[in-house]
Nucleic acid binder design. Structure first.
Length: 511
DNA sequence: CTGGGGATGGGGCCC
DNA sequence: GGGGCCCCATCCCCA
């Protein structure tokens, strides 16, 4: 007994889910475009993806090998077994597809392309150099094989992933692992910079994550094919910057040399049973993007944007401390509930399709982005809108470089400018993943790292990793036992200044 | 159950 | 852009 159309129906369902972003657990970045997909499907179709998806939730493809339009066809093929209509599949397109298929080790697609070219009288030789059979496998590290890279290195030897596996099993000392990871992280950053320079727009700005944060107009962003719902949301921002990959070889979110899969893997020898109970790791855990951005996973809480869910979940605690300008869900709206899988972060409205979301996103005016965060700032708002938010004047006439808003004295114009940014109501730097807005690019970049799990700083003692060097230094006192902060009232000593301050509040509080 | 301490994550801000 | 620091929030452990 056999269900005739079982596989066909299954694939159809998967493709429909992909279209909606439902349960998609990986994002493939190709130039300006983001493609959401299912790891299982990719792994089942491509040896290349199979080597990457277990470790990475964000895969950056080499734009020299595959363009967004081509990858779209590739993805369509993976999910349907068919190529696009013939009109769009010219010989040139087929050649490009063949290159992409070879690069991605999609043997069936590559064979299909070769047959097609042969049928059309073309010789696929030029592309054949990348065919799977020629062992041009992408370097397993995911760092692009590139046209000139014909390495047949076994995937497991791949430095990047090898590092991963080694670290998990403790075959490597935590410290060594940490150092290796750090190196890898740096490599990624370097590659990001390099790629930024290759950005066609010329405006490419590396965000330090290997992602080009070049500003793009909403129309540009929304026009991007297959952009994930979350990225669409980000794109809705006037300052939207589509999450564009740097034209580098498949760099992956793995800039993080693969973080431990679970919190327990990070377990320091001891301080705690787990680093943070509320947070497995900041990695882009499977489904995190979907869950948080699409509101699909209600169990995961409201996520970064703080919409819905009442602040539950791992990061709910952050809600009280965040200054989302654009976070309040519409009353009565429950993101991700029912068919409204596409949620607009700014207003919290849900839509059943990306098209409807896109249309809705366009209705947000520029002004909406600059809604005041706090009512008490209303008075300042006028000043800021008139002066600071437009262009902070050099303030050369102010003797002490006084802030026009709070009269704070700054040592020079640069400091003043930076200080005045704190008064700006607009936050020109949006996170492409959760949509949160920041006053400084550096803060946004740091925030993005938390999404992507980039933790360059590793403790050599326990292997625990941090996003900030300062945190690592702070953490090291756990191992050294150093307690440099002493309470002047009771003599209590603390490893961290903030805990001393917390302690001091205990002394000073009425209770 | 509660409060204090230890430890960590994230954002703001300044240098 | 990155480093450093501060602050807030939170979680876990333990007395």
């Amino acid at each position: 007994m056999e269900q005739q159309n079982h596989s066909k129906q299954l694939l159809l369902q998967l493709n429909q889910q992909r279209a909606k972003g439902y349960l998609c657990d990986v994002i493939i970045v190709v130039e300006n475009a983001l493609f959401r997909a299912h790891k299982n499907v990719l792994a089942a179709s491509s040896v290349y993806f199979k080597s990457l998806v277990p470790h990475d939730n964000l895969i950056n493809l080499d734009t020299e090998m595959v363009s967004p339009s081509i990858f779209r066809q590739v993805l369509d093929f993976i999910y349907t077994g068919r190529l696009s209509s013939s009109d769009s599949v010219s010989d040139h397109s087929i050649s490009s597809l063949l290159i992409a298929a070879s690069y991605l080790q999609l043997t069936e697609l590559a064979a299909l392309c070769r047959r097609k070219l042969k049928h059309n009288g073309q010789t696929p030789s030029s592309s054949n150099k990348m065919t799977p059979s020629s062992s041009t496998s992408p370097t397993s590290n995911g760092h692009t094989p590139g046209p000139l890279c014909l390495s047949s290195t076994p995937l497991h030897n791949h430095q990047h992933h090898n590092n991963h596996s080694g670290s998990k099993k403790g075959s490597q000392r935590p410290g060594q692992e940490g150092r290796l990871r750090e190196d890898l992280s740096e490599k990624v950053f370097i590659s990001g910079s390099r790629c930024a320079s290759l950005s066609p727009s010329g405006e490419g700005r590396s965000n330090g994550l290997g992602l080009d944060l070049s500003k793009r107009s909403p129309s540009e962003s929304t026009a991007t094919e297959e952009v994930s719902p979350s990225s669409l949301l980000q794109s809705s921002s006037p300052h939207s910057s589509s999450l564009s990959p740097t034209p580098t070889p498949p760099t992956t979110s793995s800039a993080k040399p693969e973080p431990p899969k679970t919190s327990t893997d990070l377990q320091p020898r001891a301080p705690r049973k787990r680093p943070r109970g509320d947070k497995v790791t900041p990695e882009l855990e499977d489904g995190e993007v979907d869950g948080e951005e699409n509101g699909l996973d209600q169990s995961e809480g409201s996520g970064h944007s703080g919409r819905g869910g009442g602040g539950g979940g791992r990061k709910g605690r952050r809600n009280g401390n965040t200054n989302y300008i654009y976070r309040q869900p519409q009353p009565g709206f429950e993101p991700g509930v029912g068919d409204n899988l596409y949620v607009c972060i700014p207003c919290g409205k849900g839509f059943p399709s990306s098209e409807q979301l896109n249309a809705h996103v366009d209705t947000h005016t520029h002004d909406q982005l600059y809604l005041k965060d706090e009512e008490e700032e209303e008075e300042e708002e006028e000043e800021c809108d008139d002066s600071a938010s437009k262009e902070v004047k050099p303030d050369a006439e102010e003797p002490g470089h006084l802030c026009t808003v709070c009269s704070k004295s700054c040592k020079d114009a640069t400091s003043l400018r930076q200080h005045e940014k704190s008064h700006w109501l607009n936050r020109p730097f949006p996170c492409n993943i959760c949509g949160k807005l920041f006053t400084q690019r550096g803060t946004m970049t740091r925030h993005m790292r938390s999404h992507l799990g980039l933790k360059p700083f590793a403790c050599e003692e326990c292997g625990m990793r941090f996003t900030r060097q300062y945190r690592l230094a702070e953490h090291m006192r756990v191992h050294s036992g150093e307690k440099p902060y002493e309470c002047q009232l009771c003599g209590g000593k603390f490893t961290q200044q903030r805990n001393l301050l917390s302690h001091m509040r205990m002394h000073t509080s009425p209770s």
